[in-house]
Design a protein around this nucleic acid. Structure first.
Lengths: 173, 173
DNA sequence: TATTGTTATACTCTATAACTATA
DNA sequence: TATAGTTATAGAGTATAACAATA
């Protein structure tokens, strides 16, 4: 439990390790030169969140040309590859709560990107489909997503990229 | 561009692939039996987000006993390993905006978990330290985090876990 | 002139309760 | 009785503008 070398950088550090907390009203006047994040960096959850946020940060400006947020892209992509999918199925697949999907579907329909059709077996449900305009937009949006994917993983070999996806799926699947 | 086998499951599917979008007012009455998420599952960003959310979902109930949200844990952990860290440094390290940190620090101080001390070189800043109570709580909280880490990565070998963290850091660092 | 910490506030995201039409 | 879709609303999370004190 002694002082570890390197990671932290203090100034005016007296040899009173372990007593700072006891002096909570007036801890030693030390300051941190460079922040040691090594503990958090050892946790998968922390790294997964940082990586996801980094990619989303790149996603936002690139998809702005299509006026799509990440969730809109996910919804349209699932409709693209699952024509006739219902709102309920979208909610389950993407962990969206039904009340929060309503506005998205309404908005995408108003923009002429998707259309609702009667469900063949269930009169409560509506099958969702892309319009021609929606298909055209998604062809471009998926190309943009794949270009982002390529650049976001530019520090990885193709094998590493495949490994990363496989290991991530072992966490959540 | 023909029909791919397997992934999608339709019923009452006529051989009119490619015409559904044109019939946007009345698409074919198909329905999706099981949702094909393979496209999204091929994107690192999607997988990183799902993995992060899965771990956070486990984190919440386990840290409830300490009344710590993920961000509180991150803040306290950085103070633990960087006694004297300033609010501004916390914001930079964790990508928190200063106005959003104020309430957290105030709350943690009111709970007696942290204490502010004068900064030795900068009278604008305050160095943050754990109190004895804060140290005691964080010893337990970090143990809980490590147990969660162990269980969340139970499908991974130790080498795979190390690889996963290394690859994630290549994405965001 | 720039930075730290702060207040106030707006915006987005996520969650809960309750309703209808249908299964 | 359960489910799909919906409305209204509450809460949590994230964002910008502006200020005082200090560098």
């Amino acid at each position: 439990m002694g002082a570890r070398p390197g990671a932290r950088a203090y100034v005016v550090r007296r040899s009173t390790a372990g007593t700072i907390a006891a002096m909570s009203a007036a801890p030693n006047p030390v300051f941190v030169e460079s922040v040691d994040t090594s503990y958090l960096e050892g946790l998968v959850g922390y790294n997964a969140r940082r990586a996801a946020l980094a990619i989303i940060a790149e996603f936002l400006p690139r998809m702005a040309q299509y006026e799509l947020r990440p969730v809109d892209f996910s919804v349209l992509s699932l409709i693209t590859h699952n024509p006739g999918i219902t709102s309920r199925q979208l909610c389950s697949a993407l962990s969206i709560l039904p009340p929060n999907l309503v506005g998205m579907v309404t908005g995408l329909e108003k923009r002429g990107l998707i259309a609702r059709a009667a469900h063949p077996h269930d009169r409560r449900a509506m099958g969702l489909h892309l319009t021609e305009e929606g298909q055209s937009l998604m062809r471009n949006a998926e190309k943009t997503a794949e270009q982002l994917e390529f650049e976001a993983t530019s520090q990885l070999t193709p094998a590493e990229r495949k490994t990363l996806i496989r290991l991530l799926q072992k966490i959540y699947a």
